[in-house]
Computed example of a mutant assay.
Amino acid sequence: MVRLNVLLLLTVMLCSLGVVTSQHKARQLFQALEVQQERTRQLEVEFGQLQLELSTWGTAPRIEKIAVEKLGMRTPDAETLLPSLPTGGASR
């Protein structure tokens, strides 16, 4: 009877150690998951900011400003413009 009690006691101790170990591992994994979710949120915010910045860089007024200031381009005078007519590529 004493052997059975000792065997059962050892079994209970091993099971309890297994439960404690698995709970500890689950808590560690949950903490790592929360860290990664926060990182995901940060990256989504940064991505949105970069998309906004990209759309700002490509606006027509900014492109015109660069063309005038850095490239020295200007709008041609009205009298120097030659109107062009479409060529008859398609038959009617």
Rank of each mutant, 00 (worst) to 15 (best):
W57K: 15
Q42R: 14
M13S: 10
L85D: 07
T87L: 10
S84M: 04
N5R: 05
E53G: 03
P86G: 00
C15Y: 06
V19E: 11
E64W: 07
L9V: 04
L9Q: 14
L50F: 06
M13T: 10
R74G: 07
R92G: 05
F30D: 15
Q28D: 05
G58P: 00
T75D: 05
M73E: 12
E64D: 11
D77H: 07
Q36Y: 01
M13V: 15
R62A: 02
L81G: 00
R41T: 11
T59L: 11
A26Q: 12
R39M: 08
V68P: 01
E34M: 13
L14K: 02
L81A: 02
H24Q: 08
L81D: 01
L33Q: 14
L8I: 08
L4W: 00
Q31D: 12
P83A: 06
E69M: 08
S16D: 11
R92S: 07
Q28L: 11
C15W: 12
A67Y: 08
R41D: 14
D77R: 11
L33G: 01
I63D: 03
P83N: 07
Q49G: 01
T11S: 15
A67I: 02
R27Q: 15
G72T: 03
V68H: 09
L71D: 04
E69Y: 03
V68Y: 02
T75N: 05
D77N: 10
K65E: 14
R3H: 01
L10F: 07
P86N: 02
A78E: 14
M73Q: 13
E38H: 09
R41A: 14
M1Y: 01
Q36N: 12
A90W: 01
P61C: 05
Q51V: 14
T21K: 10
M13A: 14
R39Q: 13
S16H: 06
L54K: 10
A90R: 13
M13Q: 10
S55W: 07
T75M: 05
T21C: 04
L71K: 02
